[in-house]
Design a protein around this nucleic acid. Structure first.
Lengths: 228, 228
DNA sequence: GTCTATAAGCGGATAGAC
DNA sequence: GTCTATCCGCTTATAGAC
């Protein structure tokens, strides 16, 4: 239902309210899980009555799935760049990590709702997981494999390298409560995400024998394998 | 309450039942979260009545905290080795990753209960998180920092390197549902954990300029920076 | 669309018999 | 320790007035 140029005022108001409800639901589900969130609390957070919420979303599970859909759409939009990129490997990987971390920074609650669903076995979102998320991840893994080149012998396992990238970037949203305690800073600041980006990028590129794209080819601990 | 040599039959039975309840609770909480788990369902999984469960654990939140305590004790037991180790850096780090992955493999449900609690902001376990878990992680980070040596210049950030290790190893428990779909194998097999260990260990050691401990000093992609 | 009212059931927790 | 019986608040969801 994309908004055309002639959206009426009513439709606009309705759209605004739906967004407010979804935002409230995303936050509540992230903090309390599906079972721990009541429709009444979500409605209160959205500034409307429980009955009114149920007018827009006929039941709790539909609301929950809509939240997941909304987050998924956002996430997929951020992630398509990787498979389509024709940049140099080090730049493609670097940008991918950056985009994934940026998503964690920009939408941590959405990331958490997803994490909760996966941890619980994806029983409410299994079809979408199989039909959309897994293919996207597989495409990313295939891209990564292509970027790694054809040295089959002692090559880094692309699937597990991808799992590491994915787990690491995601954790800056999902486990931020723990990181905040360790870094003694709440919430996490821009410098923390920058340090995360820098550390993870360096780790991955270094393990692949690729130069660091930002600081040029200079890698302090070693010399580059070939002239660039 | 360590069991002495003269534990009565009754005490033994009670202990057995408590363990059965805790196991059922761990599994139920892991799959459904705190709010999504009912005492009745946990009791049924343990093979007793709801009222009987409430005789052993007076309320739901106590049961939940006991599960977390039980998992934490197990986890702490696995993790002390790192800080105490005096092995060579590459061996210490290698063993740490191995132990953390082994915990994910052996007790995935416990790992998930913890993850759910942290994602929800650790509102039910904040004190223990601050007093036990965070200090343990800080000690591990300090150990890692020591192992990294004193090159302050362009050194890998120990905190974030640790976050990466921690997130990656934990994800093989928490997000196994997704990995199972990608790897097309349910549940994950020993070979998957071995591939995870190998990939992550190699990634971390390589980024630190350390030789791989298992395959000797041979690292396919580069030559060692200095003779060992 | 938003309200009041209410249905129908599940939730955690307690009382007291045995 | 385990059982039956029960309380009562909160839950999702619906009906119908305005």
């Amino acid at each position: 239902m994309a908004a055309g140029p002639f959206v009426g005022r009513r439709a606009q108001l309705r759209d605004d309210l739906e967004r407010r409800i979804l935002a409230a639901a995303e936050e509540t589900f992230a903090m309390n899980g599906f079972g721990g969130s009541s429709v009444a609390v979500i409605a209160a957070a959205a500034g409307i009555s429980k009955q009114n919420l149920l007018y827009y979303y006929p039941n709790k599970i539909d609301l929950y799935r809509t939240v997941l859909d909304d987050v998924l759409e956002d996430w997929l939009g951020c992630m398509i760049d990787f498979a389509a990129t024709s940049s140099r490997p080090e730049e493609a990987i670097s940008r991918y990590i950056e985009a994934k971390l940026e998503f964690s920074r920009r939408r941590p609650q959405g990331s958490r709702v997803f994490a909760l669903e996966i941890i619980g076995g994806a029983r409410n979102y299994g079809n979408e997981l199989k039909s959309k998320i897994v293919p996207a991840l597989r495409a990313d893994i295939a891209t990564l494999e292509r970027l790694l080149g054809s040295r089959d012998d002692d090559r880094i396992n692309a699937e597990h390298l991808f799992f590491i990238i994915w787990a690491s970037t995601q954790s800056y949203a999902d486990f931020s409560a723990q990181m905040e305690l360790i870094l003694d800073r709440k919430p996490l600041a821009a410098q923390d995400f920058e340090a995360a980006r820098s550390t993870l990028t360096r780790l991955v590129l270094n393990s692949l024998g690729l130069p660091s794209p930002m600081t040029g080819a200079r890698v302090e601990t070693r010399s580059a394998p070939e002239g660039d």
